[in-house]
């Protein structure tokens, strides 16, 4: 009985802390009484008006499209390179220094170079997003392939599994739990890169919306954009977890419950 109360209470606790944070914000803003520090209530009120507008939603759509394109390219490159580096020692030795070098560069640092090369439009923005999220995917793919057990490798060798078949039928499924964990991190990093690239680039988008409201001193609207990003990140992560549980049901069973929450 006590246990079931605790189980019901668990999400409630999280909600309570969330509401408390809003209350602290509200109290602090009211005590300041400045237009630069709008209280939570007025931000929520504004959000209620702003979020459903076509203007705002078009921006959200543009941001999501960029995220999707950058994700597809970055994750594809990350998984592909990770599989190649994981399955061939020579490829790993050849590529590792370059990859480690590029990985050390923050995505934001390549923005000026990307602008010089690609301009201010979607090409630059998608490149920055893809760059920002491809490395965690690559590193996780590589780690996943290298964690494939020696017994599985030997079994594949005994069964005459060729190089290409080994990549797709042994390493890819074997590394999938690790790859998916990398992809989930990549979604959050991708969102960061979306905002960064929109701060400096052209076209509509959430990042652009936030910048615009800031320069126009519409502080509550600026917070609306920021809060929406938080919401978007949260929802994307949840969706990802649901998909992950379906695709990797075999994995969660084999390592026990409670992984990847």
């Amino acid at each position: 009985m006590a246990a079931s109360v605790a189980r019901v209470g668990r999400p409630l606790l999280g909600v309570a802390v969330f509401l408390a944070a809003l209350a602290v914000w509200e109290a602090w803003a009211r005590s300041k009484g400045s237009i630069l520090v709008p209280p939570a209530s007025s931000v929520v009120e504004t959000a209620w008006e702003v979020w459903p507008t076509t203007d705002f939603l078009t921006g959200v759509g543009a941001s999501l499209r960029r995220l999707a394109a950058g994700f597809a390219i970055g994750a594809g490159v990350g998984i592909g390179l990770g599989l190649v580096m994981g399955s061939s020692t020579r490829a790993r030795r050849a590529l590792e220094p370059l990859v480690e070098f590029c990985r050390a560069m923050p995505a934001i640092a390549i923005v000026p170079a990307a602008i010089v090369l690609l301009g201010l439009g979607d090409a630059m923005q998608i490149t920055v997003i893809a760059f920002g999220l491809c490395f965690p995917v690559l590193v996780n793919t590589l780690a996943g392939v290298r964690a494939v057990s020696p017994e599985v490798r030997d079994t594949a060798a005994m069964l005459q599994v060729g190089a290409l078949e080994r990549i797709f039928r042994i390493y890819l499924p074997g590394a999938l739990p690790s790859i998916v964990a990398g992809l989930r991190v990549a979604v959050s990093l991708g969102l960061v890169a979306v905002v960064i690239s929109e701060f400096v680039g052209e076209g509509e988008g959430l990042g652009r919306y936030i910048r615009l409201q800031q320069t126009e001193f519409d502080v509550p609207a600026m917070y609306c954009g920021i809060l929406f990003l938080g919401l978007l990140g949260y929802v994307l992560n949840r969706l990802f977890l649901v998909g992950e549980r379906r695709v990797l049901s075999w994995h969660y069973g084999s390592v026990g419950e409670g992984v990847g929450r």
Binding site: S149, E151, V152, T155, G174, L176, H251
Partner: peptide, 14 residues
């Protein structure tokens, strides 16, 4: 054909 000691690591878990 080869059979290993560690069955849990030799079967394809997926």
């Amino acid at each position: 054909a080869l059979v290993f000691q560690d069955y849990s690591r030799s079967l394809f878990p997926w």
